[in-house]
Amino acid sequence: MAAGGDHGSPDSYRSPLASRYASPEMCFVFSDRYKFRTWRQLWLWLAEAEQTLGLPITDEQIQEMKSNLENIDFKMAAEEEKRLRHDVMAHVHTFGHCCPKAAGIIHLGATSCYVGDNTDLIILRNALDLLLPKLARVISRLADFAKERASLPTLGFTHFQPAQLTTVGKRCCLWIQDLCMDLQNLKRVRDDLRFRGVKGTTGTQASFLQLFEGDDHKVEQLDKMVTEKAGFKRAFIITGQTYTRKVDIEVLSVLASLGASVHKICTDIRLLANLKEMEEPFEKQQIGSSAMPYKRNPMRSERCCSLARHLMTLVMDPLQTASVQWFERTLDDSANRRICLAEAFLTADTILNTLQNISEGLVVYPKVIERRIRQELPFMATENIIMAMVKAGGSRQDCHEKIRVLSQQAASVVKQEGGDNDLIERIQVDAYFSPIHSQLDHLLDPSSFTGRASQQVQRFLEEEVYPLLKPYESVMKVKAELCL
């Protein structure tokens, strides 16, 4: 049975990233139509530049190519590739079939990587351009969430054990800070992308030097003109047959890092959902379990974690691919890159769409948070109580021993009897502590235990987050809708 299948058929496997999760716009960027249309555009740009620099290419040939950029006979191309065992030459023939007058000058002087690699770089750039505003929107939604809850005390956790208090907004800023680093890295790697350009079979530009009869300047002009037509500021000066596969490492490393950030955020949300302090959106008709109707599973956060793990592992592909590119190139890269580049971007696209949807509907339960604080705060307040007693004339050592005994009794009630923490009640009825009984409410005010959390939130948002989001103001209103 021949390899390949009808990918629109229910009898043929289709990647869930495309069929179930990723956005239509990201799927289109990695589609065959987008790819092969870009090949034709690159052939047109090459012909236009070659004509401008004096090669015998007519206006009629150029116009014929322009008129057929979208006229792609995919069936013919597939048949040609089956016959020739070469995808680029299959599309040269297919393009030439609908451009008979231009057929002889299509791909003039070029090698397969002229269309293959340059198209990949265009796709990487455009895919990054799709991700950047999506990530900015996630940051914006979380920034709104953090600002609104900047002063809401909550129990902090280290080692997932109760620690000092923080605020809900401050905790959210930990998430935002990681995503801001990801946004900066995505922008950097996007701006650092260079075009492969017009380089020939081993990167020496020998074929173009021959076409222009040894004119170095025209060869350099050709490279520059096509690079500018493709919208790049610069091209690699040095290439082998391909652009260095280190570029793929750079791009997928940034995406993998984004995956790590999203995994951490969504894990926190899942843990908070278990504590009943916070939940992701839950639709009115949504079913959490087929057997347990009360369940409210954090399905979206779980999906993000599941896909983020996949995204983090994909960076190993370009690392290994770059390491086995012998001399000017081997074909070890080809099949692998067809999979890992598309999957990385479709996965990143999915987790950003999902995280935006989550961040637009996060639900906080202040009463649950308050109750958990009441359970733990008495123990945390013991040092403040000791200091207040010393100020009232008591002995630190005597007070410490009193607190120690009462704390152990209260802990026994919590752990052995399943009761509430009654340390404060014990202190309130103990005559030894009568000098500070009137101060206990103040000493137990949760806001006095959150330090500068709310001020940190305000400063972080104003100095770091809002300036970073400013270039994306025009796209901030787009909502994230999930079908599944």
Rank of each mutant, 00 (worst) to 15 (best):
L314H: 15
D178G: 05
A453S: 13
F236S: 08
N71A: 10
P467W: 07
E48H: 05
Q416F: 13
K276T: 07
M76V: 13
D117K: 00
Q61G: 10
G197M: 00
L423V: 04
R234T: 11
E283A: 14
Q409L: 08
G96S: 10
E302K: 04
K187E: 09
L69H: 12
S253E: 07
R137D: 07
E343H: 10
H91P: 04
N185W: 11
C304Y: 01
K367N: 14
Y21G: 08
K134T: 14
L124G: 06
R309V: 12
C99T: 12
V414D: 02
H86E: 00
S23D: 13
C173P: 00
K66G: 08
D349F: 05
V364Y: 02
A102P: 05
I424P: 10
F95W: 12
T204P: 00
R396F: 04
G203M: 01
G419K: 13
K147C: 08
N353S: 12
A410V: 05
I238D: 00
L135I: 14
Q41N: 12
T94K: 09
L355K: 04
G393K: 08
E213S: 11
P162H: 09
S31T: 10
T154G: 04
D59T: 12
S257A: 12
Y432C: 08
K218E: 12
R303I: 01
R171I: 00
E81A: 00
Q428I: 09
L406V: 10
K75N: 10
S151W: 10
T242W: 05
D332G: 01
M299Y: 08
Q416N: 12
A308M: 01
L131K: 07
Y34R: 05
V390Q: 10
I72G: 06
Q455M: 13
H93C: 13
R371Q: 04
C99V: 12
H107I: 04
V262M: 08
Q285A: 08
E417R: 10
Q61Y: 09
K367M: 06
A235W: 12
V198A: 12
R374V: 05
L341I: 13
Y466T: 13
C180P: 01
Q161R: 04
L135H: 08
G418R: 03
E473F: 11
I339L: 11
L461Y: 06
C266D: 05
E401F: 10
K276S: 05
R296Y: 06
P153T: 06
V457E: 04
V219H: 05
V88R: 00
L42M: 15
I72H: 07
Q455W: 06
W39E: 06
Y13E: 09
Y466L: 14
P467Y: 06
H310S: 08
L275Q: 04
V254H: 14
F449Y: 15
D349V: 06
A335M: 07
N336Q: 10
R20T: 00
G418V: 03
Q409N: 11
V226L: 15
A47W: 03
Q416P: 02
Q356R: 07
Q325G: 10
D349R: 03
L108C: 15
L44M: 08
K246T: 04
L444M: 15
I385L: 14
T204R: 00
A291S: 04
C113D: 00
P446E: 04
L128P: 02
P153Q: 00
I287T: 13
S474D: 15
S306F: 01
Y21S: 00
Q210R: 15
M76A: 12
I386A: 06
S207G: 14
Q221D: 13
N274D: 09
C180E: 05
E280W: 00
Q325P: 02
D248N: 04
L440G: 06
L423M: 13
A235F: 14
F95R: 01
N384D: 08
E228L: 08
D441Y: 13
H217R: 12
L174R: 03
K246I: 01
M292H: 02
E250A: 10
S140W: 13
D268Q: 06
D420T: 05
D332H: 01
D117M: 00
A388K: 05
A47M: 05
R337P: 01
L307A: 13
R137E: 08
P446R: 03
K147T: 12
C304M: 13
F157K: 07
S434D: 10
E60L: 11
G240T: 11
V414W: 04
A103L: 10
L193V: 11
L461G: 03
L406G: 06
V198I: 13
D182N: 02
E417V: 06
C27S: 09
H310F: 06
G104I: 10
P298T: 06
H437D: 06
R404E: 02
A291T: 02
A49H: 02
A411F: 04
L183A: 09
D333K: 04
L142W: 11
E464F: 05
R245D: 00
L135C: 06
G109K: 01
E481K: 14
I139G: 07
E228C: 10
H107L: 04
F449K: 10
M225N: 07
N118W: 01
L55T: 05
I265P: 01
Q221S: 10
P100V: 10
C113T: 05
S434N: 10
R309E: 02
E383G: 02
T239G: 02
P133C: 09
M380Q: 06
K479D: 15
G361N: 15
L331Q: 03
Q428Y: 08
I424Y: 15
E360V: 09
W45A: 11
A342W: 10
L319T: 00
F282G: 11
M181G: 08
L108G: 06
A206R: 02
D398I: 07
V88W: 01
